[in-house]
Design a protein around this nucleic acid. Structure first.
Lengths: 124, 124
DNA sequence: ATTAATACCTAAGAAAATTATGCATTGCTT
DNA sequence: AAGCAATGCATAATTTTCTTAGGTATTAAT
């Protein structure tokens, strides 16, 4: 069935994704309000057409660490017997989210310059 | 003396730089021809106004690994008694450099989209 | 009845950087 | 002339962060 088969299974090499996970998570939560872990992985995969796939082994420890450091707070919800853990940004988390996004944005501009893409616009 | 004092000492958090080091090095060598390690750190620092500072502990292992995998080749040069190790891209290295740059470029576009910067242009 | 999807989690290991060194030469300043 | 900063290489221990590989359990679909 075509539903869950990735025809063109292009993914960014994992090393590129390193260091951006927290920013992705914080920003998603800033825009979506509240989300649960599984939802985050699914949403990122969907938004990037499968090009960025957050593994659960990477996500959950990150969520826990963000909660520990006071960026996120949680509430559990039960659907029948299944548990969902919803994450929301704290006030501190909102600030951090904005900072992280700004920093990543600037960083990407710097990288673009460093890769000499600016003078080559209209080339990509 | 103002020369080596960074007045506004803003640096990207190190986690952002992770995963882009090889790409930076390969691309610099593609554009500059041949460079030695110390020169690379200095050049990147200069080009980014100190915002990206490659530490030697990160650079040298990376250079060695790129040489081992056949992307780079080296030649030593002596200035008096001091040694310089110049790195050049091999043919394979040139291909890899282009691929890495393309991948990083696409990745940054995806990230921009994911951070919802596209619809907010004129906002940053 | 069995598989796929949903939903959470952790532990062992690998990878890549930081931090902290070490060595040696050269140039500048006092 | 002494001492420090800069040049130039390198590695080792630690930390951080991710991958890989598992584990548990519920629900929906075949």
């Amino acid at each position: 069935m075509p539903k869950n088969v990735m025809y063109i299974c292009f993914m960014y090499s994992s090393e590129l994704i390193k260091g951006t996970l927290k920013t992705i998570v914080l920003n998603l939560l800033k825009e979506q309000g509240r989300m649960y872990g599984y939802e985050i992985t699914a949403r990122v995969k969907e938004l990037t057409n499968g090009k960025i796939q957050i593994t659960e082994g990477a996500l959950y420890p990150t969520l826990h660490s963000l909660e520990k450091s006071g960026e996120l707070e949680t509430e559990k919800e039960y659907l029948g017997k299944r548990v969902r853990k919803y994450y929301t940004l704290t006030e501190q988390g909102q600030t951090t989210a904005s900072q992280k996004v700004n920093e990543l944005t600037e960083f990407m501009q710097t990288m673009k310059f460093l890769l000499d893409l600016e003078p080559k616009l209209g080339n990509a």
